[in-house]
Design a protein around this nucleic acid. Structure first.
Lengths: 198, 198
DNA sequence: CTCTTGTACCTAGCACTGCTAGCACCTGGA
DNA sequence: TCCAGGTGCTAGCAGTGCTAGGTACAAGAG
């Protein structure tokens, strides 16, 4: 019965891998939720372990360290953000409206989920971006910007224009969150920016 | 000789206060230098105390906590940055050239002193900005933006335009430092931005 | 010049952090 | 039924920000 045994081995191994993947996801979600509820300072390995109802060292069998957990949260965040930008963009046929919709989606995402946005764009440094080794989630997010900026680029270099427009949105998102801009004028700032890039 | 004694007391007290102020400055400078050399993670109270050749608790007789030290570094950074922007701006009579000079000065400052820039704009949250209680250093920095944006504002609300322009610069500075933009295209990004705000 | 008062400063320690070594137990296979 | 292997735990390390306690020196009074 060695063949039957080996088949059972394989299925058991598969189940274990599935359970591992689930637990990995559980850790990522718990870290994100904790960060969104109390900020990243509250995300300690002890509190996180308590939340997923495992002991501390279990985290290290899934991730190299705390930074890797934050990075995993960020990558998941890129997937969420891309989906949102995509939905906003494809809801409009006019390039100008599509650009506005994407910008609104971007700023709303940053405002509604500041901890997640921080993990994606402020905290982490070693998430390589423009290179070929970038995670697909990051490349997809960039693709949304390409889709919406390219039709309006005119004579400008598309990638430069994307970088400038994205930087402008990022600046508004972060400075606004840091309470360095007037909260009453979010709409006015966005309108002014869009008037320069449409 | 009580009057002579009291006079001496006063001068002694003045000397002590002077020494205290000097030491306070010493701590701020040491914190900034350490951060610029090895990053803010390396700025621990122990290393900082060792650097100024005092014991750890001395720091707490000058500052409420580590955050207060970072904040003091940031405030000093605003003074430095304002001076630099002012020199760049006043070197040109044409409003368009003045705007460009200020933008270049801003981005150069951020690129050359990223740790200081972080303390000023990324790390600290409780440095109130637009309000009347803002430290004068912050208000002065904002004033430089007013001086350079106002002549070109046209029909736009000046303050909105400042916020948008400043945010765009801030976004380029931080994303560039995080290696999320192409280092080869700094000039192109700045040119494109200026073409929209001149 | 001596004594007392105040204060400036340091040593030691607390509760916490990220991370790891080593052991116990339990599950799967013969 | 017994063995092997891996899973997950307890305990501990070095380092963090911050504070309580005591010591020793300097300043003023007699």
């Amino acid at each position: 019965m060695s063949s039957a045994a080996s088949i059972r081995s394989v299925s058991i191994q598969e189940r274990r891998e599935r359970e591992r993947a689930e637990r990995r996801r559980l850790i990522i979600d718990a870290a994100r939720e904790l960060a969104e509820a109390e900020g990243w300072d509250a995300v300690t390995t002890r509190r996180l372990a308590e939340r997923v109802e495992y002991s501390q060292p279990v985290l290290y069998s899934h991730f190299k360290g705390k930074d890797a957990i934050v990075r995993a949260v960020a990558v998941q965040g890129f997937a969420d953000m891309t989906e949102r930008m995509r939905a906003a963009r494809t809801a409009h046929r006019s390039p100008v409206r599509a650009l506005r919709a994407l910008a609104v989606a971007y700023l709303d995402f940053a405002a509604e989920r500041p901890a997640l946005y921080d993990a994606m764009f402020v905290r982490e440094v070693d998430l390589s971006f423009g290179t070929a080794e970038s995670p697909p989630e990051l490349r997809a997010a960039f693709g949304e910007f390409v889709a919406v900026v390219e039709p309006l680029a005119g004579d400008d270099d598309v990638e430069t224009r994307i970088e400038v427009f994205w930087s402008a949105l990022h600046g508004q998102a972060t400075l606004d969150h840091g309470r360095r801009l007037r909260p009453t004028h979010r709409r006015a700032r966005l309108d002014l920016l869009l008037s320069r890039f449409s």
